[in-house]
């Protein structure tokens, strides 16, 4: 009997302690923000959305390679020798046209791994978090600032130059090959002469390169 009374007393006491706590909170201030009206100030480094400062990008593809989910899609075209793309604000020379620089934010896992390898610090996270879309394709952000006709032109030019280079290279290769052949012939001749002269080396090892 006494035990029951004691038990009842502790129950009531603990209940009233708890109710005291909630009563204090009832008149306490609220900790929430009324979201669309008030917004939380995100800190500077908050990771909410990827942004690329395309003017500084040198098209090195390091970010795309660092991405664990392959959400960065870069296509570059080498600039032709007659164009100077200038330098980035960090002083790195730009050598590629960025014909495509797409980031699929639907795939992005906000790990920040693409940010660290960037040599020009042109890809970074920005604290902007309100970018819902009705269509998933809306989450693919196109950062390349080249117009389609420009892309076509650049590509054509690059192809031409590449073809030219290829041709030149082939010519070089051919020349080199001819040179090599010529030299080898001479060598053979020389060796033939030598063997005639010495006339005793029958078991000479085969000459093979690389």
């Amino acid at each position: 009997m006494l035990n029951t009374v004691k038990e009842g007393w502790t129950t009531f006491k603990s209940i009233f302690t708890g109710m005291g706590v909630t009563m204090r909170h009832l008149f306490g201030p609220s900790v929430t923000l009324q979201y669309p009206d008030e917004k939380m100030e995100l800190p500077k480094g908050a990771r909410a959305k990827l942004y690329v400062n395309i003017d500084d990008c040198i098209g090195c593809n390091l970010c795309a390679r660092a991405c664990p989910v392959n959400c960065i899609d870069i296509e570059t075209v080498a600039a032709t020798s007659d164009v100077d793309l200038g330098k980035t604000s960090t002083g790195n020379p730009k050598r590629f046209w960025l014909t495509r620089f797409n980031i699929d934010m639907a795939k992005c896992m906000y790990c920040d791994l693409c940010v660290y390898p960037c040599p020009t610090d042109c890809i970074y996270m920005v604290p902007e978090y309100e970018y819902s879309e009705f269509d998933r394709s809306g989450l693919v952000y196109h950062f390349s600032n080249l117009k389609p006709e420009m892309v076509a032109e650049v590509k054509e030019k690059a192809e031409k130059e590449a073809a030219e280079k290829k041709r030149q290279k082939e010519e070089m290769m051919r020349k080199k090959a001819e040179e090599k052949k010529r030299k080898e012939l001479e060598k053979q001749k020389l060796e033939a002469n030598k063997s005639i002269k010495e006339d005793d080396s029958s078991s000479k090892p085969e000459n093979n390169d690389s």
Binding site: G45, R47, M109, Y110, C111, Y116
Partner: peptide, 24 residues
């Protein structure tokens, strides 16, 4: 955490041999 790492839940803050960046 957010002020230090930039994220609130999935931080990716530690790197092998160190940290991704210094604390704020």
């Amino acid at each position: 955490f957010e002020r230090t790492t930039g994220a609130r839940l999935l931080y990716n803050y530690m790197a092998v041999g160190g940290l991704m960046k210094d604390v704020h």
